[in-house]
Design a protein around this nucleic acid. Structure first.
Lengths: 346, 346
DNA sequence: GTGATAGATGTTTACGTGAACATCAGATTT
DNA sequence: AAATCTGATGTTCACGTAAACATCTATCAC
């Protein structure tokens, strides 16, 4: 008469063995199983072995949800981005994932709809309900507002590609250095000025590259030509490249990324303008493909792996100490000289 | 004298408001809050408004961990891959992420160490402890064994780039169709035979492309030349391209991806072999950059978005029905003819 | 007017874990 | 030998949620 009051709430999901099952099999309390599971040292070696054997036998796996509920930590971070289609974003995600794995952190990708298009109703919910301990945002932070999204203010945040250094911790490639290296390289080759194919307006890295390019020219007393706006795509580079090719005075072009540089290269070829004989071209990113462009592209190398590492480092620090750190951390770039640039033959 | 037995376990993590807090403020039971939170209909409109107001006021957000613990569902899927550096993998992940968002699913990226190198001790743990309802694996499934990793057999799995159609549900681009389209295109142009730059041995798509290429040749009574093995990288394409360029009898090359095709293009240029005048080249993938290669690359277009959609569709079905479905779903390819191929000039 | 029905809401409970506290045996100190 | 300490192990409880069950109120049929 005692075995009636059972089978209450029982979601039909078949669950795996729990600590209690392991404990019973090993003849210990479930707390001891917990200790073994968390690799605490205060467990007798013989007992530990017995528990481990029981775990293996039952195929026990800790339940992350229960663990997270108890500890308040998910051991997971979110990476928020608009798109994975640009080389830079993809490599950044790749690097963050690698660095996160080192810290035994899981990475959740959260793609939010582009704020410039369509509705974003569900996005806020998705973003703030995530089971993550912190987030890395890969785009200009002020777009968050446009996207009608608010970050939970209690959540650690690191931003890449943003000028939000006073509000958030920012890690980024030293865009300014890279743009200067590119521009000075061309100037050093004797070119009277340098034209620029810029990235989209809402990208901070694009903005910074334009600015540094113009600044470098001005420092030499050169009035900078109008920057031409692309959108990072090869197509936009091609479109702008055609305009550039039509102007005989253009002898040096700095494109804000390799993909647009490639498009420009194509336009120049089609127009019969020799690269680097007549026109020199420099890119930015150093994609693995760039060295096989025709001609092999001189470009600015970004250390994405380092950016990823720094992001995780800062984020982990913020999560552990709960300090709301701000400021920018810059990762230096390196100019890779290949064959798309040559001395001005004016 | 009644307020002594509190403040027991209290992790220092500041947590947000819970359903109980909302319930108190709204003057209802927490179960009603739960009902509102889950959008059940059996709540009076006035009550719902009151609860929603209380939620907004307190900034309430459901706790995913508690929810997952209670329901046994994480509303999350894992994507397992070795690397994000190949164009195909990256695009597949991108597509899966987009499709998952439609289903309101979160995507966790799990990068496991390459099985052919180093140790993988921690990988098993990480993989099986994930808080996911199912996984998509983006690589040849038999490598899982080599990697000393076992999938929990109770977890829904969909595999991309694998021949494991009898053990798992497989979704993939129709590699065979694509390779045939490429080869037949070249043959149709009058080339006596077609050389092939293959992908790495452990890739199923690479394997399938080689086989279909050889098969297409054989069907026409042509003995296929030896396939040359690359590793998907532009560098390997370049290396093999040099070998090919040195053989005067080579007039048509089919590369297993665009990156290797690009490398081959470069080698051919350097060797002074005109493309497509002397040698025709076809790639596979249709990266956005390919149309700006020099010359613009004829290639096989893959519909990654469709692959991603199908993966999620199958996975969601498996999660909901708990049916262990197998078999292959193939997504057709499309040949994009550009300027890297021309009629055989003998 | 009485009983039946449907819908809204409340109460109780368990999901699996780990922190806090309790206990107990053996080792060490005096 | 009594007192003290140390390390191993057990017991209790709460984290936030949602399923199951229990009530309670208005509406309807006859």
């Amino acid at each position: 008469m005692t075995d009636t009051a059972k089978d209450r709430s029982r979601p039909e999901t078949r669950r795996g063995p729990s600590m209690a099952d392991v404990a019973k099999l090993a003849g210990v309390s479930s707390q001891t199983v917990s200790r073994v599971s968390n690799e605490r040292r205060n467990v007798d070696e013989a007992t530990r072995e017995r528990v481990l054997a029981a775990m293996r036998r039952l195929g026990y796996k800790p339940n992350r949800a229960a663990r997270a509920l108890r500890t308040g930590r998910f051991r997971s971070i979110g990476v928020i981005t608009f798109t994975l289609s640009t080389y830079g974003n993809m490599r950044t995600l790749d690097a963050i994932t690698a660095a996160a794995a080192e810290e035994d952190l899981t990475v959740t990708v959260i793609r939010i709809p582009d704020p410039t298009t369509g509705t974003v109703s569900g996005a806020y919910r998705r973003l703030s309900e995530q089971a993550v301990d912190g987030v890395v945002i890969i785009f200009e932070a002020h777009l968050l507002d446009q996207a009608d999204i608010t970050l939970p203010d209690d959540q650690p945040v690191v931003v890449v590609d943003s000028n939000a250094g006073d509000a958030y911790a920012v890690v980024d490639t030293d865009q300014e250095l890279g743009a200067r290296q590119a521009t000075e390289h061309l100037l050093g080759l004797g070119h009277p000025t340098v034209w620029h194919i810029a990235g989209p307006e809402d990208s901070f890295s694009a903005h910074h590259r334009v600015t540094a390019w113009a600044e470098t020219l001005r420092a030499r007393g050169i009035t900078s030509p109008l920057a031409m706006r692309g959108d990072w795509s090869t197509d936009s580079g091609y479109r702008i490249g055609r305009e550039l090719a039509a102007r005989p005075e253009v002898s040096a072009v700095f494109a804000a990324n390799d993909q647009m540089a490639l498009g420009a290269l194509q336009a120049l070829h089609e127009a019969g303008r020799d690269v680097p004989g007549e026109v020199s071209v420099v890119g930015f990113d150093d994609m693995p493909e760039s060295k096989a462009f025709w001609p092999p592209l001189t470009t600015v190398h970004q250390d994405f792996a380092e950016v990823g590492r720094r992001c995780i480092e800062k984020l982990v620090h913020a999560i552990e100490t709960k300090e709301h750190e701000t400021g920018r951390a810059l990762v230096p770039t390196r100019l890779i000289v290949r064959e798309s640039t040559a001395r001005y033959a004016g």
